[in-house]
């Protein structure tokens, strides 16, 4: 994606600098339960900038709950969750986090084009209440760049994307190889294509952290390979990747670090050491094993 001329990029860069040194994700003794029985218990975990971390575990092991705790969507019963150095529940630089779920709930039937979906990545920059101006504020910004600030302020109030925003959207689509599908309805795409679009949405938001919750469920094998190649490329480009995944072979092949969870952390270390360890058997049960060439 090409460098852009919009102020939000500078804001993101400034925010990145402001949070320099802080881990991207920092969980400290986190415990959470929907009932009296905790789903996640005393989990401490740190993810640094640029890492490619996969969280694995059997069904019901608390992977998705852990992800929601990391993102501040739910608050821990005990312990602390921090995102880019801030309390995750109060984190307000949402554009720094790109989220890709198994599938969007309304995606199938909703008349919405690929381009409109990717456009959502720019909403934090143009939404009402997100007036530009940086530390100087709108008034201060007027002295630095009166014409540009006035234009961006108008766009923030009206919620309209600038030409620069649209260029970022188109660049994000090109990055994931979906430019030809820009005007297609999202419901007409295959599972793999749809996940590429959601990655593009995160790229359009210039996310520093990409969080994916079992993104390849229901995606055909060929598309899964291409999808993981894309994640590898994004991670190599400096984006921190946090992958919640059930496919152990993919995790071992692509992630640098594996966190094995079953209510508590059973393993946290390099992917190759995870294969050698007994964490798999302890977390998944004695019958669990890697298949030749992959699979659990």
């Amino acid at each position: 994606m090409s460098a852009n001329e919009t102020d939000p990029a500078a804001r993101a860069s400034a925010a990145s600098d402001a949070g320099a040194g802080d881990p991207v994700i920092d969980l400290s003794g986190v415990t959470f339960g929907y009932t009296a029985t905790p789903v996640v218990e005393d989990v401490s975990l740190t993810v640094d900038s640029g890492e490619y971390v996969a969280v694995v575990g059997p069904n019901g092991s608390g992977k998705s709950t852990l992800m929601r705790l990391m993102l501040g969507l739910i608050g821990p019963d005990a312990g602390a969750a921090r995102l880019f150095g801030e309390d995750a529940g109060r984190f307000d630089d949402g554009e720094r986090v790109g989220y890709v779920a198994q599938q969007a709930t309304a995606a199938e039937e909703m008349p919405i084009t690929v381009r409109e979906v990717v456009k959502m990545g720019r909403f934090p920059y143009v939404a009402v209440g997100n007036l530009p101006g940086g530390d100087a504020g709108v008034v201060g910004g007027l002295f630095d760049d009166p014409v540009g600030t006035a234009r961006r302020t108008a766009n923030a109030v009206s919620g309209r994307l600038t030409a620069g925003d649209w260029r970022i959207v188109d660049d994000a689509l090109a990055t994931v190889g979906m430019s030809a599908f820009a005007d297609r309805r999202i419901g007409q795409l295959s599972g793999g294509q749809r996940q590429r679009v959601f990655i593009a949405r995160a790229l359009a938001g210039e996310a520093d952290l990409l969080v994916l919750d079992e993104p390849t469920v229901g995606v055909d094998a060929e598309s899964v390979d291409a999808f993981y190649d894309l994640l590898d490329a994004l991670n190599a480009a400096g984006i921190t990747v946090l992958l919640i995944e059930h496919d152990l072979s993919a995790v071992v092949e692509h992630a640098d670090r594996v966190v094995c969870l079953n209510r508590e952390v059973y393993f946290d270390g390099p992917a190759d050491e995870f294969v050698e360890s007994d964490a798999l058997a302890r977390a998944f049960g004695a019958g669990a094993r890697f298949l030749a060439g992959g699979g659990e």
């Binding site: 090409s2 030809a180 400096g238």
Partner: peptide, 21 residues
């Protein structure tokens, strides 16, 4: 049905450089 394009990793790298990470 259009053909799906290839993944443009060079562009991603250029952008990451611009981000300054």
């Amino acid at each position: 049905t259009p053909e799906m394009g290839s993944i443009e990793t060079d562009g991603v790298e250029a952008d990451a450089g611009a981000r300054g990470d």
